[in-house]
């Protein structure tokens, strides 16, 4: 059994989460699209806590002895779903990033006539400074001339 205190704590946490999510949407820190999965998660957890009959029937359905295990199970499941969703997004982004990087490289090469002297062309994002520093600036200036 969940005591009334646990119930109150859970409701406070849920309300806080909803407020944080809505505020992030307002400040454009979180897109509406992605806020939905969070709001849905919070709503589902709140329903489970408040509606004790549902929680108990699910508990007996999955064969758990303690209703709080059911809550934890659902909490972990939701977290997993969100993580999977994020991995999916990261995969998409890395694909798009690879495509963009190649496009940028090709445009850069095209701009400099494909014969790229030292230091000009696609200066790397992460290791840009690692080229021979003395020569780099000079050659780039010559390029522009």
């Amino acid at each position: 059994m969940l005591g009334p205190r646990v119930e109150r704590v859970a409701i406070v946490i849920s309300v806080l989460l909803v407020l944080i999510v809505l505020d992030m949407v307002r400040r454009k820190k979180l897109r509406e699209k992605y806020s939905l999965i969070w709001l849905f998660t919070v709503a589902a957890m709140t329903i489970l806590v408040v509606w004790e009959g549902l929680l108990l029937s699910i508990t007996s359905l999955i064969g758990a002895t303690n209703p709080s295990s059911t809550l934890f199970l659902f909490g972990i499941l939701f977290a997993l779903v969100i993580l999977l969703h994020l991995s999916n997004k990261v995969s998409d982004f890395s694909t798009q990033l690879r495509i963009l990087a190649k496009e940028v490289a090709m445009l850069n090469a095209q701009l400099s006539g494909f014969n790229v002297p030292l230091g000009s062309g696609g200066d790397s994002v992460s290791q840009g400074g690692a080229d021979v520093p003395g020569k780099q600036g000079k050659e780039t200036e010559e390029d522009r001339a």
Binding site: A109, V116, S124
Partner: peptide, 8 residues
């Protein structure tokens, strides 16, 4: 050679 430099 012709050169294409990937940004990373």
């Amino acid at each position: 050679a012709m050169v294409v430099r990937l940004p990373f």
